[in-house]
């Protein structure tokens, strides 16, 4: 373990805290061990011997706090995702999340720009912004809302083993778009509504964005869905998806749904702190920036 890395990590984390404190955010702590983890069908939480789960995101707890009237909150916490290991993934990693009441995803983009330019002078504001639809048109001449989406996709990739619209979307995105996003920061915005179970939607698309730097996904943000009825419906759909994938079906977190009733408008974001440190320290792998890896 490198002494330089230990001090660099501490310095960056401190400056992140300073940024949020200076902007009147309150730092909160959320549990690492929970009764009901998030429902995302493609994430697998670690289960403890007494039937609890290690949280894979503090998102639900953060929204419960918003429901209590807190206006600006942030959290730096460990999260866990079973089976995720690569040069840019570690099963245990550090997540930075922040939420704003009476805000939307555009406010989160501004926060990202301000945070990152407060940590480095490598990049300047404003960061580039492109919608998914624009990127698919630009790189593949494909209209995401087209009825012939799968046929159009088949001109570029083998779709024979893909089961859903979303899988085709991701295979195209990962092969033709993500590698061409470039080294500069860019917000990829307005994802298909099917990929944003906790976000506010507008027709085919959702108010969701991801921040990429160096082609690496750093953060995922939404204008939060605050309609409890609609949220219940989407969680039920995800329960069904988990059932079909033979995964553990978690109960619906009623405390979370009732918190939504007290939230007018809100926006939130999850940013992988280790990946941000990779970008700031110019490291190629996440293992190089984690102290005990």
């Amino acid at each position: 373990m490198h002494e330089k890395l230990i001090t660099d990590r501490a310095r960056i984390t401190q400056r992140v805290r300073d940024f949020f404190t200076d902007n009147n955010f309150l730092e909160v702590e959320t549990p690492i061990m929970v009764d009901i983890p998030g429902m995302e069908p493609h994430l697998t939480p670690f289960e403890t011997t007494d039937g609890k789960f290690l949280n894979h995101s503090p998102e639900l707890q953060m929204k419960k706090l918003l429901g209590q009237g807190l206006k600006r909150i942030f959290n730096i916490t460990k999260v866990f995702r079973s089976g995720e290991k690569s040069n840019t993934h570690n099963p245990e990693f550090t997540m930075l999340e922040w939420y704003r009441l009476n805000a939307d995803y555009k406010d989160m983009m501004t926060d990202c720009e301000n945070l990152i330019t407060s940590l480095t002078d490598k990049y300047s504001k404003p960061f580039k912004r492109k919608t998914c639809q624009e990127l698919f048109q630009e790189h593949l001449q494909i209209d995401l809302t087209s009825d012939n989406f799968a046929e159009e996709a088949a001109k570029h990739i083998d779709v024979s083993q893909l089961k859903t619209w979303d899988e085709i979307f991701f295979k195209l995105f990962l092969n033709f778009i993500e590698p061409n996003l470039g080294p500069e920061p860019i917000f990829v915005t307005d994802y298909p509504a099917s990929q944003a179970a906790l976000a506010k939607t507008k027709g085919f698309f959702a108010e969701r964005f991801e921040l990429y730097i160096n082609g690496l996904e750093l953060a995922n943000a939404f204008s939060e869905l605050t309609d409890a009825t609609e949220q219940r419906h989407r969680l039920e759909e995800e329960q069904e998806e988990r059932r079909q994938m033979n995964k553990t079906v978690f109960p619906i977190d009623e405390e979370f749904l009732s918190a939504l009733d007290s939230i007018p408008e809100a926006a939130g974001i999850a940013l992988g702190l280790d990946r941000l440190i990779m970008v700031l320290l110019d490291k190629k792998t996440i293992q190089e920036v984690i102290l005990f890896s």
């Binding site: 493609h42 089976g83 979303d166």
Partner: peptide, 29 residues
């Protein structure tokens, strides 16, 4: 391993053509 977050896992590979030596990237589900 790559995970687009709200979707299935994918595998990003580097492939080297054994006849021509050409190197390409391709991502499979």
């Amino acid at each position: 391993f790559v995970s687009p977050g709200k979707g299935s896992a994918f595998t990003r590979t580097k492939l080297k053509n054994l006849k021509t030596g050409q190197a390409i990237d391709h991502t499979f589900r």
